[in-house]
């Protein structure tokens, strides 16, 4: 077994080109569990610890560019929290302090679990993933990156280098159901992103479908029933909130598994979607 510690993206891409079977190690919060439990016995590991350029972020004009290995704690405790409050909320629900100190959004996407906490927010933000290899850079929408349970369109020699999404222009909410307030793999989650400039609503769900799920009908319904004013947004008819919750739940396709039942997940999604829209329109 070999462990490589490149110090630049270019060096990393060359290593992956020479050895596409290598396991890429970012925060390690997923990969190391698989190695510890002998579910994965890599012949080679490429650690991203020293690739400092992947751990940086910037806000340029209206766009956030988040390096793939920026840890969750940085998203919660920097200017990123104001630029992307939904992502900051989701980051705060990840694992524990220890996990948030090391876990990364790039890793969350590359693992591609239906329960990945940042994925619904990024799907609602129409986030774009920058994917690099020695062949160049390509860009893929988050909703197209993950195509099934822990299945992505990433080629073995490709590396997620950054995620881009717009700076918040309106309220954002992230809600998640689990057995306790920490260390939870979500039973169901819901992200709501309201864009006041464009008068649009985006809603995406986690843990209720194999791949990221947007709720187009419910989004259009909410946008049509919000009272868009210059000093904030309101819902004048309270029935709108209930209807929105039901429509979002209709979009979900949950299953029964060891964490919950499909029926409970659908119910939970309706409650969370209603609550998210309530919070977003009364704050």
């Amino acid at each position: 077994m070999t462990v490589s510690m490149p110090s630049s993206v270019d060096e990393t891409l060359r290593l992956l080109s020479d050895d596409p079977a290598a396991t890429i190690l970012a925060g390690g919060t997923d990969a190391m569990v698989e190695i510890n439990y002998e579910h994965r016995r890599p012949a080679s590991v490429v650690s991203l610890r020293r690739v400092n350029e992947l751990a940086t972020w910037s806000i340029d004009g209206g766009t956030v560019r988040l390096g793939a290995t920026v840890p969750y704690v940085e998203i919660m405790n920097s200017e990123l929290a104001a630029a992307s409050p939904g992502l900051a909320q989701a980051s705060r629900t990840v694992g524990s302090s220890q996990i948030r100190n090391t876990g990364t959004v790039g890793g969350n996407l590359a693992t591609g679990s239906p329960a990945g906490d940042t994925i619904p927010v990024l799907a609602a933000l129409d986030a774009i993933v920058e994917i690099a290899s020695v062949r160049g850079i390509r860009e893929v929408a988050v909703v197209d990156l993950i195509v099934g349970v822990k299945r992505t369109v990433l080629e073995p020699d490709e590396l997620i280098v950054a995620i881009r999404f717009p700076v918040a222009s309106g309220p954002q909410e992230f809600l998640k159901i689990g057995p306790r307030n920490a260390m939870v793999i979500s039973v169901a989650s819901c992200a709501l992103v309201i864009n006041q400039a464009e008068r649009s609503v985006a809603c995406a769900l986690g843990s209720v479908s194999p791949a990221p799920l947007r709720c187009g009908d419910a989004e259009e319904f909410a946008a049509a029933n919000i009272d868009w004013t210059s000093d904030g947004i309101r819902i004048t008819d309270p029935r709108t909130l209930e209807t929105f919750g039901s429509m979002v739940a209709d979009a979900a396709s949950p299953i029964d598994d060891h964490r919950s039942t499909a029926a409970y997940r659908k119910h939970g999604i309706a409650v969370m979607a209603r609550r998210a829209l309530t919070r977003a329109t009364t704050s």
Binding site: T29, M32, V33, N36, Q98, I99, T102, M183
Partner: peptide, 23 residues
């Protein structure tokens, strides 16, 4: 050995981590 329990916590470069999740 999966980052759930915190019993293996150490500091790496001053950052609190689970040592079971560090290669």
């Amino acid at each position: 050995e999966q980052g759930e329990c915190g019993a293996c916590s150490v500091l790496i470069d001053g950052v609190l981590v689970c040592s079971c999740l560090e290669l």
